[in-house]
Amino acid sequence: MATWAYPPLPADQLRHEEETALSKELEWLLASLQESLASLRDGLQECAGLLAPKEPGSTLVVSSVRSESVKGFVTRVGTRIVKGDIHLRLTSLPPPRGANSTRLNVSSVPGAPELVLDQLAAVRNLVNQGLDVVDVSTFTGDPLNASFISGQLRLLYEHISEAKSALKGNAETSKWWEHSADSSVFDPPLPPYLSFHLTIVDAALVLHLRTLEPNPANQASGSFGAEIGLSIRDRLFGPRLPSHDEQNDVFVWQGEEVKVKEKIRVETQDPSLIAVMAKLSALEHEVLKCRASLKIVMGDEDSDLE
Rank of each mutant, 00 (worst) to 15 (best):
E256T: 12
E246T: 08
N100Q: 12
S58R: 14
A146K: 08
V74R: 05
A278G: 11
R291V: 01
A146Y: 10
S303W: 07
H208M: 03
Y193H: 05
E172S: 12
I274D: 14
D249L: 09
D135Y: 06
A204L: 01
L29Q: 14
S272V: 13
A31V: 00
E172P: 01
N105C: 10
R66S: 11
G222F: 02
K263E: 13
P192V: 12
A21M: 06
E178L: 11
F139I: 01
L273Q: 02
T138C: 03
T91S: 03
D234L: 00
T75S: 04
D85V: 05
L44H: 09
D132T: 15
Q269L: 14
D304T: 01
A226G: 05
P95N: 01
H208Q: 08
E55W: 03
V287T: 12
A122M: 02
S36M: 04
S303E: 14
L230P: 02
D270G: 02
G57K: 10
G169P: 11
L153F: 03
S64W: 12
E284N: 15
P239S: 13
I149D: 04
K175C: 02
G255N: 08
G238C: 08
S223C: 03
F139V: 08
V252M: 06
W253S: 11
V258R: 14
Q34E: 05
L155P: 00
L131V: 11
S32N: 05
L126H: 13
R154C: 00
T173K: 03
F196W: 14
S243D: 13
S108T: 15
G299D: 06
N170R: 02
S174G: 06
Q45I: 02
D249C: 00
S67N: 14
G238M: 06
L283N: 11
G222A: 03
T211L: 00
E55A: 15
D270V: 08
L117W: 10
T140N: 10
G141A: 02
E25T: 04
L167C: 06
V127P: 09
Y6L: 10
I86C: 08
D132P: 11
L104D: 00
S183Y: 02
D202A: 15
L37E: 06
G169D: 08
K259R: 15
I296S: 07
V136I: 06
F251C: 10
E27N: 10
E55K: 15
V266I: 04
S69I: 04
T59P: 00
S67M: 13
I274P: 04
V297R: 15
L126I: 01
R124W: 06
G130H: 03
Q34S: 07
V134D: 03
L115M: 13
L198G: 09
T59N: 03
T138E: 00
T138L: 05
A171Y: 01
T20K: 13
N215W: 06
S23G: 04
P188Q: 06
S221A: 10
T268L: 05
D118M: 09
E227H: 10
N128C: 05
E256P: 03
P188I: 03
L153V: 09
P10H: 10
E172L: 09
E267C: 04
